[in-house]
Design a protein around this nucleic acid. Structure first.
Lengths: 346, 346
DNA sequence: GTGAAAGCGCTAACAG
DNA sequence: CTGTTAGCGCTTTCAC
C-alpha cells in the first residue's frame, strides 16, 4: 500500500512552504506567482495528489455531506425522493448519507446523533419520532433541518409540505364526479398525520357533495408492524378489500391511501373474479412509477416525490449557505392522474 | 447558536487533562481512577457532550462511513441492495453514502475520487466504467472495494457474483418444459456483461433441448440513453413486444431480461387484447417486489438483491477489519419463482 | 494513574 | 507574493 501524498510532500519537493501549496491547490483567490503556481500544479498532478478533506474539514468546519433520514428506501416513493436529493446535492459537490429509520423513533434519533457527530450540518428528514428534544438541541448547535412529508412544529426547521388534504379532496371529488356513490376507503392506520389529512380532505369532499358515507366503507388496517415493507401495504390492501366485499352492498369504487395498497386492492378484486374498472373502480395515491405499468393503469393522485427531493435539497443547500432560514413555507400541490382504473358511471 | 463542547471544556471543568477525558470518553481500555472516570462521565452528560468525529478521524485515520455506487436508486433492484447494505452497516456503526452513477462512467469516477478524498475506506460498487485506472490507484492507496452485479478483473477486489448464466438457463429450461417452442427474447442492449451471460445461459438451454431458435425472436433494444429510468425499461418491453407480434409466427412465450421490461411486455400484450398467460406466456428476471403484485403474478428468476446487499456489506466490513482480502469468490445462485404468467402447453 | 506535548492534514492570520 | 505559526478536536506516546 502506497503512502498518500500531502501538501507537505509537495511543498518539500517544490521547495516552497505548505501554505503556498495550500493556496494553489485549494484554489483560493490568494495571489501566488504564476511560476510557483504551475510548478506546484504540475507536481501535484505528477504525484497524483488527492486532498484529504478530513484535514480541511477540521480546520474550516465546513462539511460537504448531508444526511437523509427516511422510513425505508425500499419504498419507491422515498427512492424517488432520494434520487432527487442526490441529484441536486451532487451538482453542488455534496454527498448524501442514506439513513433508513424503519419507522423506529429510537433509530431515527441514533442517526441524528451520529450524523451530527460526523459534523454533518444539514439533514433532510421524514421524521417519525415524537420526541423533538434531541433535534431541538442539535438545531441549537447549528444543524439545519428540512422536513418533508409532514409537519414538525419547531422554529427554524424548513417544511416542504404536501397538501394531503387537497389530495384526498381531489380523489373523492373525482370519484363522485364519475358517478360513484358507494365508495370504499382503505387505509393504513392513522398514526401519521398525512394519512389523517388525506382522510379529512376526502370526507370534506364527500360531504360537500352531500353523499352519505357509511362507516363500514372505511377500512383501517391494524397497527403497523415495526419493519416497513412494501409487501405489507400490498397485503393490507388485499385484506381490507376482502372485508369490503363481504358487505351487503359492496362499494362501486375503492380508494386506497397509497398506490402499493391500491395494488393489493386490485389484486384481491382480480382474485374474486372482479374486473377493474368494469366491476369495481380503484383509485390510488402517490403515483409511483409502477402505477402506470400495471393493467389497468392506475388512476391516482400524484405526490411529487422526485420534485420534492430536489426542492428539499435546494432549500437545504441555500439554508446551509446563507444560514438564513428563509421562512417561506412551501406547500406542494397534488395532481390528479387519470388513467384506466376508474370507470364512469354516468 | 450554542458553542459545541469539546474534551478541553470538560477537562478544564473537571480539572484534569484532556488526555484523561479522552481516555474516559473514547472508552479506551486505558486505566483511569474510578473517581475521575465518573466525574468526567457526569460532566459530559451534563454538558451534552457530543464527540467530534472529524477530530478523531484525522488522528486515527479510521472512518466509519462506506460508499455505495449504483446505477440508480430508482431501480427497485438496487433499492433492495441498498436496504441490505445499510442494515448491516448500521448494525456495525457505519454510515453509508449513496451515489447514483446514472450509467455514466465519468460520474462514477468522480464519485470514487471524492469518496476517497473524504477518506472513505470501503466502497461497494456496481461499476459501469471501463477504465479501471483510477480504481486501481485508489486500491493501491488503501481503498477496499467490493463489486456486485458483475465482474471486475482487478486483484484484491472482492466479487459478489451472481450466476446470470444459470439464471438464463433456468428460465429457458422452464419455458421449454412447459411445452413452449417458439420463445421470444426481449432485452436491453448487451452492454453489460450480465445481460450477455443471461443470454448465453438461455441459449445453452435452448440448444440442449434441441429447440431451433430463429434470430427474429431475439429483440434487442437500441442503445441505452444516458439517464437511467424505470420507465425506459418498461417502454423497451412494449416496443420490442410490438415487433415480436408482427412476426408471421409470433412466439408463445416471451422472456424479458428484467422484471421491469417484462411489465412492459405484459402491458403491450394487454393493449393488443392478448391475455397473459392464456394467449402468450411471459417470464421475467430479478423478482423485484412488484412482480408479485401485478396480475397475473409474474413468473421470474430471483436474483437475491437484499441478500446480496447484506452479503456485500458484511464482506466489506470484514475486509476493512482484517485488511485480509479473503480471496473466497462468492457466486450467488438464482432461483426459479413460479407464479401465474406462464402457461403450460403440455 | 495522570499530564504534557506532539501531531494527523489542512487553512488562515500575520509578518515580512 | 511568500513563509511562519498556530490551531481545528482528538489520540497517543512518553515521562513522571
Amino acid at each position: 500500500m502506497n503512502k498518500r501524498v500531502t501538501i507537505h510532500d509537495i511543498a518539500r519537493m517544490a521547495e516552497v512552504s505548505s501554505a503556498t501549496v495550500s493556496r494553489v491547490l485549494s484554489s483560493s483567490t490568494y495571489p501566488v506567482s504564476e511560476k510557483l503556481r504551475t510548478k506546484i500544479q504540475n507536481l501535484a498532478e505528477e504525484l497524483n495528489y488527492i486532498p484529504n478533506m478530513i484535514g480541511k474539514q477540521l480546520k474550516t468546519d465546513k462539511n460537504m455531506t448531508i444526511g437523509v433520514i427516511i422510513p425505508s428506501i425500499s419504498n419507491p416513493f422515498y427512492a424517488s425522493v432520494m434520487l432527487g436529493v442526490e441529484e441536486i446535492a451532487r451538482k453542488s459537490g455534496y454527498h448524501v448519507l442514506l439513513c433508513n429509520s424503519l419507522q423506529d423513533g429510537k433509530l431515527e434519533e441514533a442517526y441524528l446523533q451520529t450524523l451530527f457527530e460526523k459534523q454533518i450540518k444539514g439533514v433532510i428528514i421524514s421524521s417519525i419520532s415524537e420526541n423533538k428534544k434531541l433535534m431541538t438541541h442539535l438545531i441549537d448547535l447549528g444543524l439545519h433541518v428540512v422536513v418533508i412529508d409532514q409537519k414538525i412544529d419547531l422554529p427554524s426547521v424548513l417544511q416542504i409540505e404536501f397538501d394531503y388534504r387537497q389530495g384526498g379532496h381531489m380523489a373523492a371529488s373525482y370519484l363522485v364526479e364519475q358517478g360513484h356513490r358507494r365508495i370504499g376507503y382503505v387505509t393504513a392506520p392513522f398514526d401519521r398525520p398525512s394519512r389523517n389529512h388525506i382522510y379529512q380532505g376526502f370526507m370534506e369532499a364527500i360531504h360537500d357533495f352531500g353523499i352519505p358515507f357509511e362507516d363500514e366503507y372505511l377500512q383501517v388496517s391494524p397497527e403497523e408492524k415495526g419493519l416497513y415493507d412494501g409487501i405489507f401495504e400490498f397485503e393490507n390492501g388485499k385484506a381490507l378489500t376482502r372485508k369490503l366485499l363481504q358487505l351487503p352492498e359492496p362499494p362501486t369504487a375503492i380508494f386506497a391511501c397509497n398506490d402499493l395498497t391500491a395494488f393489493g386492492v386490485i389484486n384481491e378484486l382480480n382474485a374474486h373474479g372482479l374486473k377493474v374498472p368494469e366491476h369495481i373502480s380503484v383509485m390510488g395515491f402517490d403515483n409511483i412509477e409502477f402505477s402506470q405499468m400495471i393493467t389497468p393503469a392506475l388512476t391516482t393522485i400524484k405526490q411529487p416525490d422526485y420534485e420534492m427531493g430536489k426542492l428539499a435539497c435546494n432549500r437545504l443547500l441555500e439554508k446551509l449557505k446563507d444560514g438564513s432560514s428563509q421562512e417561506i413555507e412551501v406547500m406542494l400541490q397534488p395532481k390528479l392522474i387519470v388513467r384506466n382504473s376508474v370507470r364512469s358511471l354516468n
